Amino acid sequence: MNEELITIKEAAARYGVSYDRLRRAAWDGRLETRGTGHARLVPPSEVERFLQAGRGKEAPELPLLRRQDGPLGRIMTVAILKGGTAKTTTTMNLGAAFAERGLRVLLIDNDHQCSLTRTLGIEPAELDPAHTLYGAMQTYMNSRKATLSDVIMSTKSGVDLVPAHIRLSRTDKELQLTSRREYVLQQLLAPVAPLYDIVLIDTMPTNNNLVFNALVAAHEVLIPLEPEPIAIEALALTLDEVQEVRDTGLNPGLRIAGVLLTQVDIRLVVHRDLMDNIRSDFGTELPVFETFIRRSPRFPESQARKQSIFQYDAAGAGATAYRALAEEISRGWQ
């Protein structure tokens, strides 16, 4: 016989736990449920599994993602035309989540603010500009030689990195004077991407040639979105830019992997309402990840220590959420 299904509120009462605890676990994928929104149902055995797992302090040991014919060679750009949406946090920790699953990961810091580079424990001011993304782009624009492999660095977070340099701020204007300027990053990645399973490109919150390059080079785009009214406007602008890349023929196959809700405070009514609205308004035409990332002091704490969330708090809710996101994304590749 099929196991009974109960509501999350009924499960909380039956097992004597907080309703909010179970609801948050359902939202970020730690508790498997059926249905959506307020109609989520869960079998009692799944609640028992979740509660039992929560008693442990160690991070879960997950199976490796399968690689059938060598590296996957996926390229994903993390982009939205707004700051403060956890683009860098997501690029770093999603990359670390994939690395934990046995994939070879390359991160590219495509932002002259160099936040990703610093977060991974590398000080841009101490780097030779020639050994950064800036240098590789300069070499290609001057000689059409792809030298990205020469600037790749390993990190303690288990991912490789193409670091940024503040001089990238000059590159946008220089690209404007370069023929086939939209394809520079694509050409740099051509010999490198096949060596990796996933390449993640961090971008700045600006509509410029560097961001356009990142969209042209990618197979797919991940859009991190905080549940705030002003962020919806930024989402619309980002979707327009993606459509422009498609319509102009620069990258007609560019797909949206999904919208990732970030910096969520489930206690706030405005966040809960906007999350439901985004899922209902965009869910049929625009993929919205079931996984979401809650606001947590663990993220800035880990970044202050130059660590991924997996190094800093491997068994915590933040690492759990990014594991769930990596799993959700990888299902779309199969």
Rank of each mutant, 00 (worst) to 15 (best):
N2D: 15
E4M: 11
L5E: 14
I6Q: 00
E10R: 14
A11K: 00
R14Y: 00
R14P: 00
Y15V: 07
V17K: 03
D20H: 08
G29Y: 03
R30M: 06
L31Y: 06
E32M: 02
E32F: 00
T36G: 02
E46Y: 06
V47K: 11
V47M: 11
F50S: 10
A53F: 05
P60N: 07
E61P: 00
R67H: 01
Q68T: 10
P71W: 04
L72N: 08
G73A: 13
R74Y: 08
I75G: 02
A79F: 07
I80L: 08
I80W: 05
K82S: 12
G84N: 09
T85A: 15
A86K: 03
T90C: 04
T91N: 11
L94C: 05
A97T: 02
A97G: 01
L103M: 15
Q113C: 03
C114H: 06
L116M: 00
R118V: 10
T119N: 15
G121R: 06
I122C: 02
A125Y: 04
L127Q: 01
L133T: 07
Y134P: 07
Y134R: 03
M137A: 14
N142L: 08
N142R: 12
T147P: 09
L148V: 12
V151I: 11
I152H: 14
M153S: 13
S154H: 01
K156T: 08
D160V: 05
V162G: 00
P163Y: 04
L168V: 12
S169Q: 14
E174S: 02
E182F: 09
L185N: 08
A193D: 02
L195D: 12
D197G: 00
V199F: 08
I201W: 00
T203Y: 02
L210I: 09
F212G: 04
A214K: 04
A214I: 04
P227D: 06
P227C: 09
P229L: 07
A231Q: 05
I232Y: 13
I232K: 08
E233K: 11
A234I: 03
L235R: 10
A236F: 13
L239T: 06
D240H: 15
D240A: 15
E244T: 14
E244K: 14
D247P: 01
D247Q: 15
T248S: 15
G249N: 01
G249K: 00
G253E: 14
G253C: 07
L254R: 01
R255S: 15
I256H: 04
G258V: 09
Q263H: 08
Q263A: 12
D265C: 09
I266R: 10
V270R: 12
D273I: 04
L274A: 04
I278V: 13
I278Q: 13
S280D: 13
S280V: 10
D281M: 12
T284F: 00
E285Q: 15
L286M: 14
V288M: 10
E290M: 05
T291A: 00
I293D: 00
R294P: 06
R295F: 09
S296P: 06
F299V: 15
I309M: 09
D313L: 06
T320F: 05
A321Y: 00
I329T: 03
I329P: 00
I329L: 12
R331L: 14
G332E: 09
W333K: 03
Q334L: 07
